[in-house]
């Protein structure tokens, strides 16, 4: 019983120490460790917020087996940049505007953040943002990908998204005729 109590106290001490820390350590699927601000992680990710509140953060690196090191590095980078950014006037004013759309346009730094990513890195980051419940990062990455469809023909979109055309030629021709207005600038 004594030993058990000692173990319990040690566990308690470790949890207190962990609670005092300003950062949490995350471990990617390939075993790399990343430090991220606890405040930013809790604010930006519903999943990490839940883990922090529930005490299930591992001091030696919380396992995120679904996320690769490159994507996790980008997640951490985004959290750190977000913590340092000051909400723009546009974001503040939009909250009291008549247009109550929940989606807010990415800020300049968010645009730059996703613009520098490769195609694969961007797609991996979308999945990571979704897995971690990072609504804002999902907004920004999905917005970027939706912009990649802008002004493109179905052929060009397939190329960007690496998608195989499973329509027959006849099916496509028929649909194009029916919906000619959507292809006015092809």
């Amino acid at each position: 019983m004594e030993v058990d109590k000692g173990k319990g106290e040690a566990e308690e001490t470790r949890k207190v120490a962990e609670a005092d820390r300003d950062t949490v350590t995350l471990k990617s699927s390939d075993g790399k460790l990343f430090e991220v601000s606890k405040e930013a992680a809790a604010r930006l990710s519903t999943v990490l917020a839940g883990m922090i509140a529930g005490g299930s953060i591992d001091d030696n690196g919380t396992d995120l087996k679904q996320i690769g090191s490159e994507a996790l590095e980008n997640v951490v980078d985004y959290c750190n940049k977000h913590a340092n950014s000051i909400p723009s006037a546009a974001l503040i004013s939009s909250s009291i505007s008549f247009n109550t759309a929940p989606f807010k346009e990415p800020e300049e730094w968010e645009r730059k953040f996703v613009d520098r990513l490769s195609h694969d890195a961007l797609f991996d980051l979308v999945e990571a943002a979704n897995f971690l419940g990072m609504e804002r990062l999902l907004d920004v990455t999905c917005h970027k990908i939706s912009e990649m469809m802008k002004g493109k023909s179905p052929d060009q979109i397939r190329e960007v998204f690496n998608i195989k055309n499973d329509y027959t030629k006849e099916e496509l021709e028929e649909i194009r005729q029916e919906l000619a207005w959507a292809f006015y600038d092809d």
């Binding site: 939706s146 179905p154 194009r176 207005w181």
Partner: peptide
Amino acid sequence: FRVPTDEPAYLVRAALVC
């Protein structure tokens, strides 16, 4: 979801992708 609502043609074209 993030495709602008004022550009309906984008979604129609997307329907032709696969």
